[in-house]
Amino acid sequence: MATYRDALELVIRREFGVYGAEKIIDFAAKLGITVGRNGNIISTPPGKSDRELLVEFMNRLREEFGEVSVISCRVALNSFFMKNNLENPL
């Protein structure tokens, strides 16, 4: 069963391609998310659901990197939510 954590990893890997892994690993760290070199999530901050984290990640991404960061994964996220019958929280 696909989860919001999978959606967050999809975003992370996509942004690796658009901004480079280094920048995105550093950015995620600021949100308390530890990301590995292959885009996997190693740990997340306590007290937050993966769904909340995804929303926060996307909002902060837009603030820090601009619209292109959101546009570059928008279709992929929509497709992911549709395929997996997950509500789109964004």
């Binding site: 890997r13 996509r14 391609g17 658009v18 901004y19 892994a21 292109v68 570059s72 994964c73 992929a76």
Partner: peptide
């Protein structure tokens, strides 16, 4: 083609993701 700020002349490790970002749109 790819959409990326992390550009190099020859495709790097994550180029497929940059490519997807462009083609999906």
């Amino acid at each position: 083609g790819g959409l990326s700020y992390d550009w190099s002349l020859y495709a790097g490790e994550w180029y497929i993701e940059a490519m997807k970002a462009f083609h999906e749109h």
